[in-house]
Amino acid sequence: MFELTRYDGRRRIRGSLYLSVGLSLLAAMVIWVYPSFQAEVDLDQLLAAYPEPILQVMGVQTMASLGGFLAFELYTFGWIILLGLYLAYSTAGTIADDVDRGRMDVLLAMPLSRTRLVGERFAAMVVPIVVANLLPPIVVYVGAELIDESLSAADVLAVHLLSIPYLFACAGIGLVASVAVDRAGIAQRVALGVTFALFLSESLLSGTDAEAVGAIAPMRYYDPNEVLLEGTYDLAGAGILAAMTVVLLVASQLWFRRRDIG
C-alpha cells in the first residue's frame, strides 16, 4: 500500500532539498540586509509613501521591526506567493502529466482504484511541503540572533507549521486542475492563474462590501503578521485550510472517477 506515494515521494526529495536551501538563502539575505536597511531608511516613512492598495495586496503592517520586515519580505513574498504558486503548479502535473504522456492507461491497468491513485499522488506532496519548512526556520532564528534582534523561537516555528495547511490547500487547487485538464502544461497554467487570482481577490476585496468572496481564498487563513508581530496563532484558520484541502482532494477523486481518459 502507498507504493505510488513512496515512489513519487522519493522522486521529489532532491528537488525539495534544493527548494529548502533556496528558501533558506532567501531568508539569510533578508535578515542580512535588515540592519543596514533599518539604519539608512525611515521604514515607517517608506511605507507611508506606498499606495494603500499595494500595502493591502502585500499585507504589509510594519517594517520597523525584524518580525514585520520578515512577514513582508520573506513570508508574504516567499511563502504565500512563491511557494503557494509552486505547490499549485507542481501538483497540477501529478495526474495530467500521466494522461498527457499516455501513461495513465498503464497505471489504471494495475489493481488500483482511481480514488486511491489520486489520493496517493497527492499524499506525495507532503515531501516538498514539509522539507521546504525544515531548514528555513533554523536560518531565520539563528540569523536574528546573529544581528542581535529578538525573535521568539515559538513564533518562528509556528509561522512555518501554520504554513503547512496553507500549502496543502494550494496543492489541492493544483490537484483539481490536474484531474480537470488532459494537458499538463495547461493544467499547470490554470493552477497558477487560479491561485494568484485568489491571492489578489483576498487582498483587494478585504474591507470592502465584497469581502465575503475572499473567504474561498486559502490566503485569508494564513497571516504571518499575526504570528510574528502579535504572537497570535490562528488554529481555527489552520483547521479551515485542512478542511478546504480535504474538500479539494475528495472533489478531485470524484471528478477523476467519472472522467473518460482519452
Results as ranks from 00 to 15, higher is better:
D8F: 01
G9L: 02
R10A: 10
I13P: 13
Y18C: 06
G22M: 02
G22P: 02
L25F: 08
M29F: 13
V30D: 09
V30C: 06
Y34R: 07
Q38A: 10
A39I: 02
L43C: 01
D44G: 12
Q45Y: 01
Q45M: 00
P53Y: 01
P53M: 01
G67A: 03
G68I: 01
L70G: 05
G78D: 10
W79D: 10
L82Y: 11
G93S: 06
I95V: 09
D98L: 04
R101T: 15
G102H: 03
G102C: 05
L107I: 14
L107W: 15
M110N: 15
P111M: 07
P111T: 15
T115E: 09
I129Q: 10
V130I: 10
P136V: 02
P136F: 04
P137A: 12
V139E: 09
V140Y: 09
E145W: 11
D148I: 00
A153I: 12
A154S: 13
A154F: 12
A154D: 14
D155C: 07
V156F: 08
V159C: 09
H160L: 02
L161A: 04
F168D: 12
A169L: 13
V176H: 10
A177F: 00
A180R: 15
D182R: 15
R183C: 08
A187F: 05
Q188C: 06
V190F: 09
E202D: 14
S206W: 05
G207P: 08
D209C: 02
E211G: 03
A212M: 06
A215M: 08
A217S: 15
M219E: 13
Y221H: 04
D223T: 02
E226P: 00
E230M: 01
E230L: 03
L235R: 12
G237S: 01
A238S: 14
L241E: 14
L249V: 14
R258H: 14
I261T: 02
